[in-house]
C-alpha cells in the first residue's frame, strides 16, 4: 500500500514536470532543422488520406502544408494524427502545425493559436437513403462520430436525447452506419461527402440538407508562437491573392473532382 502511494506521488510529480514544456520559436527551429512537421489526417478524404496508387498521404490539408513548407524553405514531413491526439501532439512538440480538418472554436483557442480560416463547411449527417427527413427523425437514435471532434459536441447539443457513439476515427463510424449500428454519422459535410465518394455502395446513402453548425477550419499552432502564426497567416492570404488557394480547392472540390462543390468562401484575415 505504501509503495502504491509512493508510486502515485512519483507519477504525479513526473506529470507536473512534463506539463511545463518549453519550446522555441517554430519559425526559427523548423528553418534550422530544414523540415516542417505537419499533422494531417490519413483517412479523411479529400483532406488527408492515403492515395491508393502512390501510397502517399494526399489531400487538401496536405497541399496547404506543402505550400507553407515551400514558402518557409524547408522540406515537408507528414505525420498522421487523430482528432483526439492532434492537440496534445502539437503542444508536446511532436508536430509543428496541425492541418487536420480542425474546426476553430473558442475552447480550442484557449490552448492553441489558429490561423485564418482556410476552409469553410458545416456539420451534417450521413444516413441511409430515405431514413431521415429532418433533425427530429434522429432524436433518440444512436449517432456515430469520431472522438475528440467538435462534431460530437455539436451533435449532443442538437440531439440531447440521442446516444452519441464516438469511434476512433470516421471509417469505423461509417462501418457502423453500414451495419445499421448507428442511424447516422455526423461531422463536417466535406468529410461525409469524402467518405461517401469512396464508398463502394454509395447509392444507398445520402446527406440530407440538415446543418447543425458552421465549421470554419483553421491551421493549429502552438499558443504564443507569434512569429510562426504571422508567417502562416501571411502565406495563406498570399495564396488566396495568387490564386494558389483556389487551385488547391478546385483540385479537390472543383467540377472535375470526385466531390464537386462550389467554393463559398475566400481566405481573409479574421476580424
Amino acid at each position: 500500500m505504501k509503495r502504491v502511494v509512493c508510486m502515485l506521488v512519483c507519477m504525479l510529480a513526473l506529470m507536473l514536470v512534463a506539463g511545463t514544456v518549453c519550446l522555441a520559436d517554430t519559425f526559427d527551429s523548423a528553418k534550422k532543422r530544414g523540415t516542417l512537421v505537419c499533422g494531417v489526417k490519413d483517412s479523411t478524404p479529400p483532406f488527408g488520406y492515403v492515395d491508393e496508387k502512390s501510397r502517399q498521404i494526399v489531400g487538401y490539408d496536405v497541399d496547404f502544408c506543402a505550400a507553407i513548407a515551400k514558402k518557409l524553405g524547408t522540406k515537408l514531413e507528414l505525420k498522421a494524427v487523430t482528432s483526439a491526439a492532434r492537440m496534445p501532439q502539437l503542444m508536446e512538440g511532436n508536430i509543428d502545425i496541425i492541418a487536420a480538418t480542425m474546426t476553430k472554436n473558442a475552447e480550442r483557442a484557449k490552448q492553441i493559436d489558429f490561423s485564418h480560416s482556410y476552409f469553410l463547411t458545416g456539420q451534417k449527417f450521413l444516413v441511409k437513403k430515405g431514413t431521415v427527413k429532418n433533425l427530429k427523425d434522429l432524436d433518440g437514435k444512436k449517432i456515430g462520430t469520431a472522438k475528440g471532434s467538435t462534431s460530437e459536441q455539436n451533435a449532443k447539443k442538437a440531439l440531447p436525447n440521442a446516444t452519441i457513439l464516438s469511434f476512433d476515427d470516421y471509417p469505423q463510424a461509417f462501418l457502423a452506419l453500414q451495419q445499421g449500428k448507428v442511424a447516422a454519422v455526423t461531422t463536417d459535410e466535406t468529410i461525409l461527402a469524402g467518405m461517401l465518394a469512396k464508398a463502394p455502395n454509395k447509392a444507398q446513402f445520402e446527406i440530407p440538407d440538415i446543418q447543425i453548425s458552421d465549421e470554419p477550419y483553421g491551421l493549429g499552432m502552438r499558443k504564443g508562437d507569434k512569429k510562426f502564426v504571422d508567417f502562416v497567416n501571411a502565406t495563406i492570404i498570399e495564396m488566396e491573392k495568387s490564386g494558389d488557394a483556389k487551385n488547391i480547392y478546385d483540385k479537390w472540390f472543383g467540377p472535375k473532382s470526385d466531390l464537386p462543390m462550389p467554393r463559398t468562401f475566400k481566405i481573409v484575415a479574421d476580424k
Partner: peptide, 13 residues
C-alpha cells in the same frame, strides 16, 4: 472514454 472526453472538451488531459 470519459477521461478522453473531458480532455477533448477542456484540454485538461
Amino acid at each position: 472514454y470519459q477521461a478522453r472526453q473531458v480532455e477533448a472538451y477542456t484540454f485538461k488531459g
